[in-house]
């Protein structure tokens, strides 16, 4: 093994190294969420804007762009998941005997349920991809834009969220995502060593605001659709 490779292996197998991977991949995912939200909010502008945006993504770098983005996101997602599952397992093992009585003094519920919020997000993401990206529902896959000859992304979103159980699952998952982010975003700073006495307050606020925006932004869409504020035609 070359020294470089062995250092990388050692880094990955060390606890802090793995955490750094979680944080770095977390940044990518957090960035993606922001971009994704911005795109999604186009449903409020209307069908044309939404479908233009979808088309733009498909044709970025002559169609290669979307695949590069998907590859990066998938890699980060997988690394994030593998690392966090391994960390959680070794952390559970390190605690060994449980206390009969344990009282928390600082931690938050969000911090304690990271693995469960994460796994729910994973389940949601799989469903979400099948739903809107792979489009296993033929009805949604066949929708066409009435103005230009292309897939009707806007229509797919509206039709998709008119299904109440789907929307409810979406809202629950995003609430957990919000919880995940409220702890996760602040954690990035600590894990990468960018948090200090002076910045800790600001980081916490930033993290909350980010999580709140993501949550409100995303869930507003199914809610608006269910309330009929955004409709098919």
């Amino acid at each position: 093994m070359s020294p470089l490779v062995s250092t990388i292996c050692q880094f990955w197998s060390s606890s802090i190294g793995k955490k750094v991977v979680v944080a770095l991949t977390g940044i990518v995912l957090v960035g993606f969420l922001a971009g994704h939200l911005a795109g999604n909010l186009l449903v409020y502008v209307g069908r044309e804007a939404t479908n233009d945006y979808a088309e733009f993504l498909m044709h970025l770098l002559h169609g290669a762009g979307i695949w590069i983005a998907r590859a990066v996101l998938l890699t980060c997602f997988v690394l994030h998941i593998v690392a966090t599952i391994q960390l959680t397992r070794s952390n559970r093992a390190a605690r060994a005997d449980a206390y009969e009585v344990k009282t928390s003094v600082r931690t938050t519920l969000s911090a304690r349920v990271m693995i469960w919020s994460g796994l729910t997000i994973l389940a949601f993401v799989i469903f979400h991809l099948l739903h809107f990206t792979v489009r296993i529902d033929q009805g949604l896959a066949d929708l066409r834009d009435p103005l230009v000859d292309r897939h009707d992304t806007y229509g797919m979103v509206v039709r998709g969220f008119q299904n109440v159980p789907v929307s409810l699952f979406y809202i629950v998952a995003l609430t957990l995502l919000c919880s995940h982010l409220s702890h996760g975003v602040a954690s990035i700073f600590q894990t990468l060593g960018l948090r200090s006495k002076k910045t800790r307050g600001a980081i916490k606020v930033f993290s909350w605001i980010y999580a709140a925006i993501i949550w409100l932004g995303f869930i507003s869409i199914p809610i608006s659709i269910m309330l009929g504020l955004v409709h098919f035609d």
């Binding site: 390190a94 931690t107 304690r112």
Partner: peptide, 12 residues
């Protein structure tokens, strides 16, 4: 065999 910090700040 110690665990790793996941930023609960209980220690602090």
């Amino acid at each position: 065999g110690f665990g790793n910090c996941t930023n609960h700040y209980e220690c602090e």
